[in-house]
């Protein structure tokens, strides 16, 4: 009942508090996960498995485990730089400039989408625009508008599970208001004492196709990752 008055008076919780809560729930010093990515193409689906080591938002290291063709391919992201290593060619290639706009492994995500590592509150002004619910779970809908010029998406909407403080759906908008991309998050599980969505579906709304599915098979938080893994030397 304590909840009731705020709804009655149209008062929503402050957006910054919600974001803070999400951060608290989802952020960790570092994490190691294995995940499966399924790209639903027009002709057929492709499935890839990968292991990702990440520390904060700035550093991440990905190794592809399957299929055989991509096995051993590694990607290193350090701040705004991205390198890739292909064992078949024994080459380290820097992905820069226009290449960053290409899709990653044919998915609905571009390298750039993966690179965006700034804190939401640094880039966006957030307001809560109201309650909603997704699959029966009450959510707050957050509207985030860019406060700096150099963001990829001018406006985002997030649906945040009111109890668990995790996003369940996200929409990316163009400046002129057109919906560009959409993410839905589901299969929320309690992992190491926190709720975490383990399945995400990314969809480029302007393209036809079934989108890209991302399933976390295993995730560990705050483990010991040697610093050497976030270096170019680890790529080879």
């Amino acid at each position: 009942m304590a909840f009731l008055p705020s709804v009655l008076f149209g008062q929503n919780p402050s957006a910054s508090r919600i974001i803070e809560q999400i951060d608290k729930n989802m952020a960790s010093k570092n994490r190691i996960m294995t995940a499966t990515m399924i790209v639903h193409g027009q002709r057929d689906d492709r499935t890839m498995e990968m292991k990702v080591w990440s520390e904060g938002d700035k550093k991440s290291f990905t190794e592809y485990l399957s299929p055989a063709r991509d096995k051993g391919t590694k990607m290193l992201k350090l701040a705004d730089q991205l390198w890739m290593f292909a064992p078949s060619a024994d080459r380290i290639i820097q992905i820069s400039g226009h290449m960053l706009r290409q899709s990653v492994m044919g998915s609905d995500l571009s390298y750039e989408d993966m690179m965006d590592d700034r804190k939401l509150t640094d880039v966006y002004n957030a307001v809560v625009i109201g309650p909603d619910n997704i699959d029966g779970r009450p959510c707050w809908v957050l509207e985030l508008r860019a406060k700096t010029d150099d963001v990829a998406y001018f406006m985002r909407k997030m649906w945040i599970d009111q109890d668990r403080n995790i996003p369940l759906k996200e929409e990316w908008y163009a400046k002129a208001g057109k919906l560009l991309k959409q993410t839905t998050l589901s299969d929320v599980k309690k992992l190491n004492g926190r709720w975490f969505p383990t399945k995400m579906i990314y969809k480029d709304m302007l393209k036809t196709g079934g989108g890209t599915e991302f399933v976390i098979n295993d995730i560990q938080f705050d483990v010991n990752i040697p610093e050497s893994i976030f270096s170019k030397a680890a790529l080879r």
Partner: peptide, 16 residues
């Protein structure tokens, strides 16, 4: 030289 591009089904390719 190395070719960096997309495979037929959208995957990534690196080929010398």
């Amino acid at each position: 030289i190395t070719l960096f591009g997309s495979t037929m089904n959208g995957g990534m390719t690196v080929y010398n």
